[in-house]
């Protein structure tokens, strides 16, 4: 029996064998084992992603009759504030006038409301800087003003001054009738 004194020479590569075939087995085993660990890791990571019931977007319907001209109503949508603003003619004109002004996040006013319904502005009420809720009507453009770090939005919800990088977001919404919208 070619009994090497195994305790004295703890070398896993025992002599007398075809090294490349042995090593291949070890490498193949290691690779397959690593693959198993990786494929098992994915479910544990993915389980923290939004679950089915969260993804089943809560969509809300909103009755526009509740918003008087020149006013705004704030509702909760997907855990965040949603601004529904009924703009006056003056506010619409002011927004359109600045369509081609120097804007950080260039957008025309028409891109931010549904065609034929310029007085209705539906925006996510979260400042695009760090997430505070801007106040209605504040700031020199009469749009919104964020008290946290001084971002100023115009009557189209576009960023005009302050640190916010983007305009107030327009969510996915649709008119179910002239007086009712569905958001989400």
């Amino acid at each position: 029996m070619a009994d090497t004194h195994v305790g004295e020479h703890p070398d896993p590569h025992v002599s007398g064998d075809d090294p490349s075939r042995r090593d291949f087995i070890y490498i193949a085993t290691g690779a397959v084992a690593a693959g198993a660990v990786a494929s098992l890791a994915w479910p544990f990571i993915d389980q923290m992603n939004p679950a089915g019931d969260t993804l089943a977007l809560a969509s809300i319907e909103f009755d526009l009759g509740k918003v008087a001209a020149g006013q705004q109503v704030t509702v909760k949508w997907r855990g965040k504030p949603l601004f529904v603003r009924n703009r006056t003619e003056k506010e619409i004109a002011a927004a359109v006038k600045d369509d081609h002004a120097e804007l950080r996040d260039p957008q025309t006013d028409a891109e931010r409301h549904k065609p034929g319904k310029p007085q209705w502005l539906v925006l996510v009420g979260t400042c695009t800087h760090l997430g505070c809720v801007p106040t209605f009507g504040g700031g020199e453009y009469g749009g919104w003003f964020c008290p946290c770090h001084g971002s100023v939005y115009d009557t189209s919800g576009r960023i005009r001054k302050g640190p916010a990088p983007k305009n107030l977001a327009v969510p996915d919404y649709a008119f179910l009738s002239d007086t009712k919208i569905k958001v989400g």
Binding site: M1, A2, D3, T4, V6, P12, V14, S15, G16, D17, R22, I25, Y26, A28, T29, V32, A33, G35, A36, S39
Partner: peptide, 22 residues
């Protein structure tokens, strides 16, 4: 299937490592 392959490879490794030890 994956476990069968992995276990098979592990068995082959085990036999290879223990080949020269009584």
């Amino acid at each position: 299937i994956y476990l069968l392959i992995l276990t098979g490879l592990l068995y082959a490794s085990y036999r290879a490592i223990w080949r020269n030890v009584s």
